[in-house]
Simulated assay, not measured.
Amino acid sequence: MTAAHPATQELTARALLLDMDGTLVNSDAVVERVWRRWAARQGMDGDAVLSVVHGRQGHATMAELLPERPAEVNHAENQALLAEEKADMAGVVPIPGAAEFLAAIAGVPHALVTSADLQLATARMAAAGLRFPSPRLTAESVSASKPDPEGFLKGAAELGMDPADCVVLEDSGAGIAAARGAGMRVLGIGPRALAHAPDLAVPDLTAVTVTVLPDGGVRLTRV
């Protein structure tokens, strides 16, 4: 894994790829409720399950935790959990600074790359009162969940950008691993990101200053 760069205070890019949960939207309350119930049904420790779940599609979490279980069972259960999550928006709020950040990058090439499916992503962005970026790469857009880099590589391709010219905003270990696998630099958002050596880390989006560059790129500076 690439080491952190303690002296780094800013990142420049031609395009940004944005995770959603934990990066733009705080959905931790819902995720914890749904996955603790799932853990209890499996006779598993809830904290252990929650240490794996962030950043991944649900069936990928299940495959990690129950490797002997048939994939079709995981996919079926994932659909049931997605239904639970879509019905529960209590406590879904924006990450501090998210609305202002999205407004600041409106003229910069950017895409959403999330492990949520389109319906859940739409509902959560609306519940948080945030602009829904386009293009958007959701669970339906990829054949493999983060930490596979497919979503970020497709996001860069949608924007017509080289991966090396992209900066990813992520909060989870799985997401940061996916970005690294895609050959991209990472701005880590929040406490979960710190353990995974992002190039630059901030507590939330209020700690980032956006400067749009004359060539259409962007500079992200830690406040």
Rank of each mutant, 00 (worst) to 15 (best):
D47C: 00
L137F: 02
L120M: 14
C166V: 05
R219V: 13
G43Y: 00
A144N: 03
L169N: 04
F132Q: 06
E64Q: 06
D19N: 13
P214F: 04
V223Y: 12
G175H: 10
S145Q: 11
A15F: 03
T12N: 11
D215K: 00
S51E: 15
D171N: 10
G188R: 03
V113E: 03
H59N: 04
H110P: 08
L153N: 09
A87R: 09
G155N: 11
R192C: 05
E158D: 11
D117Q: 09
H75I: 09
S145M: 08
T122D: 14
A7V: 01
G155M: 10
R219Q: 15
A139R: 15
R33Q: 03
D215W: 01
R56H: 14
I105N: 02
A201C: 10
P191F: 07
I189N: 07
A63V: 10
N78T: 13
P149Y: 06
A13T: 04
L194T: 10
T23H: 09
L153E: 10
G91H: 10
R136Q: 12
D204P: 13
L17Q: 05
A40M: 05
V208K: 07
D199K: 13
G97Q: 12
L16Q: 11
L66T: 00
E140L: 04
G217M: 03
V108P: 07
A116G: 09
A128K: 02
E10T: 09
T61F: 02
P70F: 02
M89C: 11
V202D: 07
R222C: 15
V25A: 12
K86P: 03
L220R: 11
T12R: 04
A144G: 01
H5G: 05
L17A: 02
N74S: 06
R69T: 00
E170A: 10
L169P: 04
P198L: 07
L137V: 15
H59E: 14
S145F: 02
A39L: 06
N74T: 01
V212H: 03
H196W: 13
A164S: 15
V167N: 14
M44P: 03
G188P: 03
A99M: 12
K86G: 15
S134K: 12
A116Q: 07
P163T: 08
G55A: 09
V49Y: 02
V223K: 15
A13N: 12
A83T: 15
G160F: 03
K154G: 13
Q57Y: 03
I95K: 09
T209A: 06
E85S: 14
E10F: 13
A111C: 12
V92Y: 13
L169Q: 06
E10I: 05
G155F: 09
S143F: 02
E170F: 14
A177H: 04
A104H: 14
T23Q: 12
F152W: 04
L82S: 13
